[in-house]
Amino acid sequence: MSFLGFGGAPAQPSEAKIAAAEAELDLVTDMFNRLVDNCHQKCISKSYNEGDVNKNESLCIDRCVSKYFEVNVKVGENMQKLGSSGAFGGR
């Protein structure tokens, strides 16, 4: 699947394929929503002085998104490692 790069899916009946694509879409939008919430919490001040996002906040947002993705990747790798080594409670 193309979105988060979770490897290519083998040939499946069409409903299953559509369901898988839909699930991936859900994952992506969920990740986006969490990202918006978290970066808003960390980067933008609550005392709304003006209606525009200023430069410092914009830079903060850019870096927040970049770091979030890095964390995503690293956690994924760690989970794979833990899962394969069986230290994760035998899942």
């Binding site: 986006f32 990202l35 970066c39 709304y48 525009d52």
Partner: peptide, 17 residues
């Protein structure tokens, strides 16, 4: 201001995303 800022913030996050 809050709504304007949040929408602009969302758009920016969308671009970077």
């Amino acid at each position: 201001k809050c709504s304007e800022k949040f929408l602009k913030h969302s758009e920016r996050v969308g671009q970077r995303f």
